[in-house]
């Protein structure tokens, strides 16, 4: 059993009594009250658990909690800005990209990262960036619409 501590969405958090085998995903969901990151496979194949670790998108289910020690973690709960939904979150709703929504948190984190580094991604770029995130409901068309919409709005805003 150990104590782990890291920054989540800008706030320093610690968890006690963590068993060595616990993943970052488990600690976020079950010990820190942040169940927004999802647990569709816990084997690194679906992307529903995608978070950013020091800015880099990772599958939280594949990261041992101890590996996050003293690092920066950003989850879907940290996307909204000042209580207002981020543009990528609004775009997912407006485009109809959310059905059951289980894939949504991971997709939002991945899409947000893409749009941060590329303001005008091509369709092939979007597909490549989201290729690690499964969605079983939408067939992806409206997810593509959502990312295109979010990119257009971001460009409009600057």
């Amino acid at each position: 059993m150990m104590r782990v501590g890291f920054t989540v969405n800008g706030v320093r958090r610690t968890a006690d009594g963590v068993w060595e085998g616990e993943s970052l995903l488990y600690v976020l969901r079950e010990r820190m009250g942040l169940p927004g990151s999802k647990n569709a496979c816990e084997q690194g194949e679906c992307g529903s658990c995608t978070v950013r670790l020091d800015g880099v998108p990772v599958c939280a289910c594949l990261i041992a909690a101890g590996q996050a020690q003293d690092r920066e973690v950003r989850t879907v709960e940290g996307l909204a800005e000042g209580g207002e939904p981020a543009s990528v979150q609004r775009a997912f709703l407006d485009a109809g990209a959310v059905q059951c929504g289980f894939c949504t948190p991971g997709l939002l984190v991945a899409a947000d990262e893409l749009l941060e580094r590329d303001t005008a991604p091509s369709d092939a770029d979007i597909r490549e960036a989201l290729s690690g995130n499964l969605c079983r409901c939408t067939g992806y068309e409206k997810i593509m619409d959502a990312v295109r919409l979010a990119a257009a709005r971001r460009r409009e805003a600057v």
């Binding site: 009250g33 169940p35 879907v76 709703l93």
Partner: peptide, 23 residues
Amino acid sequence: ESVRRPDGALKVTGAFAYSSDLW
């Protein structure tokens, strides 16, 4: 009309409680 989902805001913020999120 293409009305937006009433559960959509919760789903995009990670606040929607799925059966595996219960505590």
